[in-house]
Design a binder for these strands. Structure first.
Lengths: 133, 133
DNA sequence: TATTGTTATACTCTATAACTATA
DNA sequence: TATAGTTATAGAGTATAACAATA
């Protein structure tokens, strides 16, 4: 359901999930080389090339020259991209409040602790079955 | 993380997530026309054609004649497909036990109730923003 | 030599639209 | 007429491999 909600919010903004993910990471990190995005998105550099191409065409990011490494490009949010990422962040916060604001402090703590336990065991399971690299 | 785990388990069995999903639904329902799968997977009939083509090539399902409607085909698990779905179900149960067996009854009830509330509010959010159809 | 990002190619999943066969 | 499933076509996302430019 969270995935559906994100996909739908993205579509409303003219974004696919993968492009939104890239913008989100860019919003967290500021201008970075594509290699950094490839690592953050757990995707090959080739895939990043395609995503950045699309976002450049949408005027949401630009490829700027890296100040010291002429091989690399700095993927940078345009003003339009900045606005969009700010909107994403606001929506994110608003959804979090919608989902949790009605819980008491104690309820939230208990729930969060239970969830943390589940996540920890899931992480262990993934490590044991070779899913975490 | 759950998605990663499933994708990885699928890959180990030579399956993509979409094909696994179709097999899973088939395991729940028994032989069904493709139209039913399209609805279950929330996907167009055309997409089901492609997925069934691939699963037929892998000898996991067959297209059988519908007894009364000659337009339709009944997608049916082969013995190999049955075995694979049984394995999926075992893995599913095992993971559920891994994630929750260490909780007491009371802890689990509280956690489940908290989660149900979050899901309910998420559903409301989706309905309000037009995400549930 | 190693790294950054590209072009070339291919596969999976999905969609819309036009069509065939059947109901 | 309506429905089940297909072919035709297209787009997004991803991958590997070979390559260019630069470090």
């Amino acid at each position: 359901m969270l995935g559906d909600d994100m996909a739908q919010a993205n579509a409303a903004l003219g974004l696919t999930p993968a492009r939104m993910h890239l913008l989100w990471e860019l919003g967290q990190r500021g201008p970075v080389p594509q290699r950094v995005l490839a690592h953050a998105l757990k995707v090959t550099p080739r895939a990043v090339t395609g995503l950045v191409d699309a976002l450049v065409a949408q005027a949401l990011v630009t490829r700027e020259a890296h100040p010291t490494d002429r091989r690399a490009t700095l993927v940078t949010l345009t003003p339009r991209g900045e606005t969009l990422v700010a909107q994403l962040k606001r929506d994110h916060e608003k959804l979090a409040r919608t989902l949790f604001a009605s819980m008491s402090r104690g309820e939230f703590e208990a729930f969060a602790q239970g969830l943390a336990g589940v996540i920890e065991r899931l992480r262990g399971h993934l490590a044991a079955t070779g899913g975490l690299s």
